[in-house]
Design a protein around this nucleic acid. Structure first.
Lengths: 338, 338
DNA sequence: TTGTAGGCGTTATCAT
DNA sequence: ATGATAACGCCTACAA
């Protein structure tokens, strides 16, 4: 009993009209008689008709699907952004296909290719930390697929972009630490290949310059993994290093919390001996003790903005739309750890 | 300069072979001469050919896409499960389309319909908390689409299922609290419409029965929202209620942590005056203070298992495969809060 | 091993 | 307002 799936053709036959008419009626085309339209819709229901989106997409060359690529959905920033993207997309009739690159360049390349081959209408992408060549992205853009880079962007690609104001955000945190009287501020960074990391380093430097302070390059550590363990190791290294820091600014809350816990284990007084600040304002940051000072990134809104931008691009007639750049300001949340 | 996209037809023409040959060569069919195969692949590269997955799916009636529906990807349990699903699916050449029902029945219905219309090869679904009728699911199953329910399941649907052993897990936690000398154990539950919540309540009851203890129904609170705020309110209510609890078992870590923080604010000594236990072992649970006793759910593995099961179902010849039920045991993690 | 030809289910372009 | 009919790009018997 392989239940025959009804198609518009079946409906057309039963109604003695052409399949074109059925197609039009079903999609609410204007130039169609009220009665036929109703008849079609009724028959569709009666015959338990369900449109085949594949066929529709193939024919119309529009899939109504947005592809999203993030390093992982397991971190709050990313899952929040995705929610924001979905929120906007869904309202406009778009579906979202989500992929995780797991910080692997190879996987990112595969995913992007798959997405393109699936004929998604647009791709929202946050680069993996391994990514430092961009041919795969340029490729799909050349194929005519709109791309928007968000949060993890690069200057080599001329697409629309949505980013955090990392430079000023970072500067603000460091300024805050300086104001608190700290003078040996360490920076626990991610890999500098990431523009975000670099931008935050620049903010760190500018804050020092503006206060006519120098800083010890030894206090800048580049971590490969965003894990508690990596942060713990880094803290120990810093604490035993030639210049013992009196403050620690971390690239992400997860690192800050790893360091904070490690610091507590070592008996370091926080914030007196060592002030700690993070970036991201993950849920968890308000619950650790001492609670964590951090920059709040409006991740949900960033997702919304990104989706909004790319959808506008997709639905704009002209092929020649200039890429849009949007930067969102993070907000300093001062808590006990500083 | 609308760049013409090359198709297998173009390749065929350039090579003076038939479309069928090209199609076969590209998909590594066995009965094809080595040389022609190589020639085709070379030409494909030269002409910058990219397969159109839409067309392929339409024709083959296989999309190689799995649909996943969860309440939200913002909670660790769900994002971890999804990672597990993706992990397995990706390895077998399947893509994953992720949707969030946002706990809305209406949205769940729409999503399921969309997924079915997109001709996904299978759907992995965790019910929204609003869902208490299941016609939309039965429908797509009748349409021949494999469905697997995970974590949030129901007995009304006869599909494969992957669940946590909620009953025994819950019983174990409560037993643990009893062993600690607690006798007035409150249960902060989600809506009882969810099978998970009910199962954990049963575990709660059984633990009491096995210890020949009675419990006060007033100590069982049903929350609608999984938020810190909801938990805070609930705790206050319990604390001022007619029976003041000496322990609190929460349906999810997020509730436990909300209660824990609220308790601290009220000056309640944890665990002496009030022991608190959660469920899920979110990252955050080890960082709150006192750190949280909780049941660890292997969410990633559950996702893997779920994907594995449904993919087996999809790729099994017979249409008549019996649904599989798998239950995964959670593990008690004892920390300071009890 | 390769070619022919008829789908797959819609949309879109011309006519009428 | 409706109908024919050709795409859309690929797959797959069936033939050769």
């Amino acid at each position: 009993m392989s239940k025959k799936v009804t198609t518009i053709k079946d409906i057309a036959e039963r109604l003695n009209v052409s399949i074109a008419t059925v197609s039009r009626a079903l999609r609410g085309s204007t130039d169609i008689k009220r009665e036929t339209k109703l008849a079609v819709m009724e028959m569709a229901k009666e015959m338990d008709y369900h449109p085949n989106l594949l066929a529709s997409s193939l024919s119309s060359k529009k899939s109504k699907i947005l592809g999203v690529v993030v390093p992982t959905i397991n971190r709050q920033f990313w899952s929040n952004s995705i929610s924001g993207i979905e929120n906007i997309a869904y309202g406009l009739g778009y579906k979202v296909m989500i992929f995780q690159s797991a910080e692997s360049f190879q996987k990112e390349v595969e995913i992007v290719e798959t997405l393109a081959n699936s004929r998604v209408d647009g791709i929202l992408l946050a680069l993996s930390k391994e990514t430092n060549s961009y041919g795969h992205i340029q490729n799909i853009m050349d194929r005519g697929i709109p791309v928007l880079l968000f949060e993890r962007v690069c200057s080599e690609i001329n697409s629309s972009k949505v980013t955090t104001d990392d430079l000023n955000g970072s500067k603000e945190v460091v300024q805050h630490l300086i104001t608190r009287g700290k003078r040996k501020i360490a920076y626990l960074s991610g890999p500098m290949s990431l523009g975000v990391c670099e931008a935050r380093l620049t903010g760190y430097k500018e804050a020092h310059e503006e206060n006519r302070l120098s800083f010890d390059p030894d206090l800048i550590l580049e971590l490969d993994d965003f894990t508690y363990e990596a942060a713990e190791k880094a803290l120990k290294k810093l604490w035993e290093g030639r210049t013992r820091p009196d403050a620690l600014f971390c690239f992400a809350d997860i690192l800050a919390i790893g360091a904070l816990e490690a610091g507590k284990k070592l008996g370091i007084k926080i914030p007196e001996e060592l002030a700690i600040a993070g970036f991201g304002n993950d849920d968890i940051s308000r619950f650790v003790s001492p609670s964590l000072t951090t920059m709040s990134q409006p991740s949900f809104e960033m997702g919304q903005l990104a989706a909004d931008l790319i959808l506008k691009e997709i639905n704009s007639e002209e092929d020649l739309t200039e890429p849009h750049y949007k930067t969102i300001k993070p907000e300093l949340i001062i808590r006990e750890s500083t």
